[in-house]
Design a protein around this nucleic acid. Structure first.
Lengths: 237, 237
DNA sequence: ACCTGAACACCGTTCAAGT
DNA sequence: ACCTGAACACCGTTCAAGT
């Protein structure tokens, strides 16, 4: 793959790499990517090839640098994925609040966040791993708590309900994205092998997402503002 | 690692490997594991080392065979993990149904399933990936739909509600397990760096799980038996 | 400030062959 | 029935050094 032409090293040897100068006509021996360039390239690979192909080596090749060069921008791959996650979440469209009930607002926020996860291939999986690890992607929580707060619940209720919704939103999107991929891969292969009774198949009917969110909102409406901590729960022990 | 002593190949050369015979005193040149042995060993590694150490090579070494030997038992690693997932779910304790409301039953089933996920290190992550992929772990769905059905809901409602709960249960357990691990690793390191305001930290207070399940049950109680398909939902388009 | 070059210590999977 | 041996095509990460 190396092109045999001689590099312009003679020119480069005389450069004073005055550090402050931003992108000096890009006459450099290597790519000189910014941290943002790296994230953008990662999002590109993610969307067009998927998470399995988002390797440090592949990403580096896309940027025209060596794999080790990435470690100047990020301490490790997890940190890179956290930055990618934040970008995916930040891409969620903003919701028009004016004149809407808190229920409508929660529905709209949840849908916007789900759409953001679905906008990138394997987006839900990336965000899932990132927020399980406790890195980034707090935008999910923030927007949902904000919407629920409008219902006048106490802070604890809002946060717990938001956390419940986050798990559902991400889990549902993850599941749906995998199903899309499985369908596109095995569409022809399994086309006439359809003796369908798989319970996982029942989940993907349209409206499953809206149903879940509606269920949680209905739960909040019924609970009111009190936190259920009574021993009547048939719970853990 | 190879011990220099001579193998008992002389004895082995005379063997008629009559295929039906089960475990013939185990006088064999190699380990002769059953498929079940492999799953058991995988569960052992998972529980004591965690998912990152559950590699085909490590697993093979534990069983005393070559990595390639595993591919006689399973077509690939995903299939192995699916079998491991099924085992984890099957380990959920059974719930005493007698004289309990459907709400209590749902709570108990959900708790039993969560406990099963938490019983093995990284159990939630393994099950999460498996059921996202659409392989196995349907035990989760089955038990929850069974419990919800007792509330007299129509089949569609039961299944959608169960799917919602599955996402919450797995997501919550995943999150909690990662937090446990992060705490155990960085307990000393971050002990006096605690200027806490992380919203993810607010999630892990005890009762967050019960809250989520209670919220979903309350939602079901309010929804009754009708499926919300009216255009009043502030949903996706 | 941003990257190279080279190495280290790994992966999952295939396949012919052995017993 | 259950596994070996050897190979293929990869991984993430470190670190001294270069410009």
């Amino acid at each position: 793959m190396e092109n045999g032409v001689h590099l312009n090293t003679v020119l480069l040897n005389g450069v004073h790499y005055t550090c402050g100068m931003p992108r000096p006509e890009s006459t450099a021996a290597y790519a000189r990517n910014s941290r943002d360039d790296v994230i953008e390239a990662a999002l590109g690979i993610l969307d067009q090839q998927g998470l399995p192909d988002l390797t440090m080596r592949h990403l580096a090749a896309t940027l025209g640098i060596q794999p080790s060069g990435l470690y100047w921008h990020f301490p490790n791959k997890q940190a890179l994925l956290a930055a990618v996650s934040d970008r995916i979440i930040a891409g969620a469209r903003s919701v028009d609040t004016t004149g809407r009930s808190w229920q409508q607002r929660v529905q709209a926020e949840a849908t916007a966040l789900r759409d953001a996860l679905l906008a990138f291939k394997d987006g839900a999986e990336v965000v899932s791993s990132t927020l399980a690890l406790g890195l980034g992607a707090e935008g999910l929580h923030r927007r949902l708590t904000g919407a629920i707060d409008a219902g006048g619940f106490d802070e604890e209720t809002s946060e717990l309900a938001a956390a419940t919704m986050v798990h559902f939103i991400v889990g549902h999107a993850f599941h749906e994205q995998q199903r899309i991929q499985a369908d596109s891969l095995g569409a022809v292969a399994h086309a006439h092998t359809l003796d369908r009774e798989d319970p996982a198949e029942a989940t993907d009917r349209p409206g499953a997402f809206d149903f879940g969110i509606t269920l949680l909102i209905a739960g909040l409406e019924r609970q009111g503002t009190h936190v259920p901590a009574d021993p009547a729960s048939a719970g853990s022990q």
